[in-house]
Simulated assay, not measured.
Amino acid sequence: MAVTRQADRVDAVRDLVRANGKRWTIAKGAVVEALVGADEHLSVQQVHETIAARFPQIDRSTVHRILLALAEEHVVHVLGRQGEARYGMADEPHHHAVCARCGRETEIPAKVIAPALSKATAATGFTFATTSITLTGLCETCTTS
């Protein structure tokens, strides 16, 4: 079931990219598959390592360019962590919590943050266009150590 789910996500991203008038290439598909299959956000190097065995012709700079293009298309989002950008899929609405001490990242479902955004809109009159909010704090492990 998980494999079908991952394939469905890749297909949906491919359709979105094409609908936006962009090309879908083997390299772009490999990068998206790597991100969809990951349990966490990945660096350019990690994505490259994930796809290198299957696609040795795709170099690290190509992976980097693809990730930047996908970020511009709002297909992936970028988290900065200790000087290294990490990329994750943006196809399922969520936000992020990042530990300021160890760098651990976790996703927060968008529905958890939605009430706070509604209150912020009511208090300020702003309409917030959010693709991702990153909250910084201390994870459970760092809080207790």
Rank of each mutant, 00 (worst) to 15 (best):
M1T: 06
V3E: 14
V3N: 05
V3G: 07
R5P: 02
A7E: 15
A7S: 08
R9K: 08
A12H: 10
A12D: 10
V17W: 01
V17S: 00
V17D: 00
R18P: 05
A19S: 15
R23N: 06
K28R: 15
G29R: 04
G29Y: 02
E33P: 01
L35W: 08
V36G: 04
E40V: 14
H41Y: 14
H41F: 09
L42T: 02
S43I: 11
V44R: 02
V44K: 07
Q45T: 08
Q45F: 06
Q46H: 04
Q46A: 12
T50D: 11
I51A: 04
I51E: 11
A53T: 12
P56S: 08
D59M: 11
H64D: 03
H64A: 06
R65D: 01
R65K: 08
I66G: 00
L67Y: 01
L68V: 02
L70K: 01
A71M: 04
A71I: 00
E72K: 01
E73T: 00
E73K: 01
H74K: 08
H74D: 12
V75H: 00
V76G: 00
V78F: 07
L79G: 10
R81K: 14
Q82T: 03
Q82K: 07
G83I: 08
G83Y: 12
G83S: 02
G83D: 08
E84D: 06
R86V: 04
G88P: 03
M89K: 08
A90Y: 04
A90S: 13
A90T: 02
P93W: 04
A97W: 12
A97H: 11
V98A: 15
C99G: 07
C99R: 10
R101M: 12
G103W: 14
R104K: 14
T106P: 10
T106S: 15
T106W: 13
E107G: 06
E107M: 15
E107H: 14
I108F: 06
A110T: 09
A110S: 08
K111N: 11
V112M: 13
I113T: 15
L117G: 01
L117N: 02
S118P: 01
K119N: 06
T121A: 10
T121E: 15
A122N: 03
T124H: 11
G125V: 05
F126V: 05
F126T: 03
T127V: 14
A129P: 02
A129M: 12
T130S: 15
T130H: 07
T131H: 06
T134H: 02
T134I: 12
T134M: 14
L135T: 03
L135D: 03
L138H: 12
L138E: 09
C139F: 04
C139P: 05
C139W: 07
E140N: 10
E140R: 14
E140G: 09
E140C: 06
T141Q: 08
C142R: 13
T143G: 02
S145G: 13
